[in-house]
Write a protein that binds this DNA or RNA. Sequence first.
DNA 1: TTGTGACTTCCAGTCCGTC
DNA 2: CGACGGACTGGAAGTCACA
Lengths: 73, 73
Amino acid sequence: MFRMNIRETLSANLKRYRRERGVSQEELAHLAEIDRTYISSLERCQYAASIEVVDRLAKALEVQAADLLKSLD
Amino acid sequence: MFRMNIRETLSANLKRYRRERGVSQEELAHLAEIDRTYISSLERCQYAASIEVVDRLAKALEVQAADLLKSLD
DNA sequence: TTGTGACTTCCAGTCCGTC
DNA sequence: CGACGGACTGGAAGTCACA
């Protein structure tokens, strides 16, 4: 009945991997060289990130870019 | 030695799935409701697409968004 | 059938904050 | 530590004509 959209999927994966790694938004921001407030925005589904941002986040979290878009059915 | 960047990965997956399905850029454009020339641009790695564009292309090709970002090592 | 250049619009993404 | 605001810039998003 309810299906997550792609922003929500990214948000959920991002939060999950970030917490698994035990890093704060700010630390992740530094690792991925992305603005701190922007990561906060992504976790709140405010923007549709580009694949380059997804890729940098993936590298910082040591996963594949594809992993951040995997749907959680 | 040589590693594909994320734009090239998307481009390769896009071409591969599109040809597997036997659809032209124009047909895919119609299915995904994206301009044909924009799809052409993505296959030539001109832009870093947003995850929403990736998601629409994935649905049109009947795959997961994550599949379009899977690296081909 | 696809590539390309030129163009415009609008949002992704940055940087400064406060709470 | 994270949510949230405003102001700003560059690049993605989208369209067209033509090769």
